[in-house]
Design a protein around this nucleic acid. Sequence first.
DNA 1: CGGAGTTTTGAAGGACGTCAACATCTGTGG
DNA 2: CCACAGATGTTGACGTCCTTCAAAACTCCG
Lengths: 235, 235
Amino acid sequence: MEAEDLAAALVGLPVFAGLNERELGRVVEAARRRELDKDDTLFEQGDPPEAFFLLLSGRLKVGQVTPEGRHVIVRYIGPREMAGCVAVCGGLSYPGTAVAVEDSWVLAWSRMAVARLTERYPIIALNVMRIMGSRMQELQQRLREMQTERVERRIAHALARLAGQAGRRSESGVEIDFPLSRQDLAEMTGTTLHTVSRTLSAWEGQGILDLGRQRVTIVKPHAVVAIAGDLGDAA
Amino acid sequence: MEAEDLAAALVGLPVFAGLNERELGRVVEAARRRELDKDDTLFEQGDPPEAFFLLLSGRLKVGQVTPEGRHVIVRYIGPREMAGCVAVCGGLSYPGTAVAVEDSWVLAWSRMAVARLTERYPIIALNVMRIMGSRMQELQQRLREMQTERVERRIAHALARLAGQAGRRSESGVEIDFPLSRQDLAEMTGTTLHTVSRTLSAWEGQGILDLGRQRVTIVKPHAVVAIAGDLGDAA
DNA sequence: CGGAGTTTTGAAGGACGTCAACATCTGTGG
DNA sequence: CCACAGATGTTGACGTCCTTCAAAACTCCG
């Protein structure tokens, strides 16, 4: 990919909204490109934040490990999304570990480059502020779900969110477009892989889902939304 | 309180770090002061975000209500802390409702004033970015707790956090310095007031706490931290 | 003193985690 | 090409943490 193409890829991104083409070119020049193979680690929980990333292609999984060794998935990051922004915004370390769940390409700006860019183009700081605001709303919503909702609903919510982020229309419905295990879903929703397995199996029995190894296809999206929403059953 | 005193009150605040006294004066001039009586509402969930606030004195409770009518407390805000920042940072509405739990004073900047100030003093945007970064870390930590920890520990965590934010040394220990009901603690930790009552009573029996109506005093802070940390019992 | 809000405590039931065993799939190497 | 190991997924039984339901005691305030 050439520099011009990269700049083109940045057009329309909320982070760089308000910059013209030439300015985008400058921004791209300050970045390094980096390729990640599946299962490669981009940054590790606790590391000093050296860079801020933008995902060009592929998909990342950001997770945390508790002192007791329990794994939690904070979020998945798709193409044209940022990663590492929390840490670079003044954090002392990355709060989580980012791993590629597919082969991926990222753009990386060093901490210094970020400082220079935000100084030169203050609008970037405003854009980041806006994006972090919406991420905080998202986090607050998940926190509320965790506090008030049953496991079944939380799983439905997670599936609905994933379908929105990474859903691909297939012949039988909407397929989550990256390898997603029962364990992953459990770590997203604060439950166990057993409960996830049971729940998904039940839904498959009702024709709502089509399941495979590390693969979920939503056959009846409306049913999933209904479960996530407020209806207890959705036959 | 006079304008000069207000400017003095702003010195040392992370939001306005990097501004000199004269600039702080300008910032103060752009704000309106507002008094809140106990139980007054500062802003309501869903309202369009009209202003951004800084708490001068007193204490606010930010909560959300789910579509099903369950209440969740997002956070408490103490003196010198910001409120409404998520919404003003590009949100379409306030994500929660802010209510004064004590008589309070706030400084309020209208949305337009915020836009003018961040344009004139870009460092403010950078500061806000930093603050939001640390708040996001805090939120992620709570989310992790909700997913991995038992109720008992979550309550201990909540108490430890509150003691840090609003603890006042009294003769018998550290007292949470504002009215805090069992229901409030339940809404912070995702449980019921019954479970909170039972848990706190047990701890009082062990001499860890001293309880009253809407009042909690931590007699043995180390025991609370131990429960929150990793030890199952703390006699 | 009355009444509303808060707190305590008991009992019963259920949602979900834990433990255990087995099935299935994938990739690797002989 | 097949066998095997390791990862992943399924399912059942059981226990328990916690919610739900219920009732009573307590505290503050007018």
